[in-house]
Design a binder for these strands. Structure first.
Lengths: 240, 240
DNA sequence: CGAGGTGTTGAAATATCTCAAGCGCCGTGG
DNA sequence: CCACGGCGCTTGAGATATTTCAACACCTCG
């Protein structure tokens, strides 16, 4: 019994059969959600932990003035921010961007898993660390990259992440993001995102349409983005 | 035997005496550093883990065009990003901003601690989660806040963090950041930071000079920033 | 058929950057 | 003790990336 989540965590090379089996058992509780459904809303009581098995989701925060900033994209196999189940206060919301199927892990079960299998704690932790690298790279993008570079960088990141989970090939993949969503993730305006996208298409570097990304000139795109995929850490060190 | 680091981790209320004692033992290896010293440089072999006991440090990344983006500030008690010791590639550099004293934990010793005491893994993990909240809030700032709001928000964050470790009171604290450093952290230009700081001072809201922050109108500052300190997950400290 | 979400385009407004210069302070070396 | 150089701060004026506002076309869905 394997799913995107287990493949993801096993990727770190830490888990034995007992542990993957335990994870498999924990993921029995499935839920189908439409696009635009909330998994967690800021202020909720944190109870179950969610894992995306299919579809896309994003985390975001609403500002006093009503603006929205998207903080993370979640792809199949990703935790919906475990921290949310651990820290007391929930400091942001999570919603699906497409139809999605998620597994729900009751908090108690998470705790039992962690108690029983320290190696799982480590695997969770490492997965966290990769997420953190992504957050850092976003900060770099927002702080120091111009709009074209930012768009290019995000496309590179998402393409590689999709490829890492076997959902991309030939420089094409699904990318179900509206220009509004993109704008809220990149700290730009929808109209500006539109112009940037348009210019990248005109330059025959990449094209984003109908929910799909096609990278025409991968090297050029990576160069514009200043992209260095190391931070996605496909491989990790073992302790012990 | 207690230091900023142990107080920090004990603050989560997870550790027993054995564990704090182990941590204390692990922190015997001290090092004094001048301002501007590198703890880790991008590309180094990750060996020891560092913990700041006194002084300030920051993590940053240099872009192809030579620009610098600061990604995090580290205050006394903070890990210098443990992930660095765990993930293979080091994806950013860390340097001191002031004279500092750091404890170095050899990687092997970290591993031994984690093996011996699962609760320590959890405490480390937890500490990571708070760091992650901070990263998220930075993304929100860079993406959706204007320059004044950004400056105000960072000042609020740093003030609260200083207060949480007992290094601030009466709306004043040490803040050894040059305008250049501030600019590199906020994704702004030094000259623009200067103007913002100047305007905040003229408005008698806060003043930053000679390495010290003085908040004159805390409510106004928080309001400009749209600051909600929840994400820092303040907790009650135990005093040993 | 109408309504709303999404993408597209233009023109004007503005926040922030760039470039450039000058000032004050402090530690260093003559 | 003074002169010097360097760094951090300050200020101005012009340049530019991005936003704002406004309008329209397209498509899907009820």
């Amino acid at each position: 019994m394997s799913n995107a989540f287990i493949r993801h965590l096993s990727g770190y090379g830490l888990l034995d059969d007992t542990e993957t089996a335990l994870l498999g058992g924990a993921c029995k509780n499935l839920r189908e959600l439409p696009a635009g459904a909330h998994l967690i809303r800021e202020g909720d009581e944190p109870d179950p932990v969610f894992v995306i098995l299919e579809g896309w989701a994003c985390g975001y925060k609403i500002l006093p003035d009503g603006g929205r900033q998207i903080i993370s994209f979640m792809l199949p196999g990703d935790f919906c921010d475990i921290h949310i189940a651990i820290l007391q206060a929930i400091d942001h919301s999570i919603m699906t961007l497409t139809k999605a199927t998620v597994a729900t892990l009751p908090r108690a079960e998470m705790e039992a898993l962690i108690q029983a299998r320290p190696m799982l704690t480590q695997a969770f932790w490492w997965s966290q660390l990769v997420d953190q690298s992504i957050l850092r790279s976003w900060i770099v993008s927002m702080g120091r990259r111009k709009s074209v570079e930012r768009v290019a960088h995000l496309m590179c990141e998402l393409y590689i992440r999709m490829r890492n989970i076997g959902l991309a090939s030939d420089h094409e993949c699904r990318m179900p993001l509206t220009q509004l969503v993109l704008a809220d993730a990149l700290g730009l305006t929808p109209v500006h995102v539109n112009r940037v996208l348009r210019s990248l298409k005109a330059a025959r570097i990449m094209e984003l349409s109908h929910g799909s990304l096609q990278i025409i000139e991968p090297e050029k795109l990576a160069q514009i983005a200043g992209f260095d995929g190391n931070y996605l850490h496909e491989r990790v060190h073992k302790f012990a």
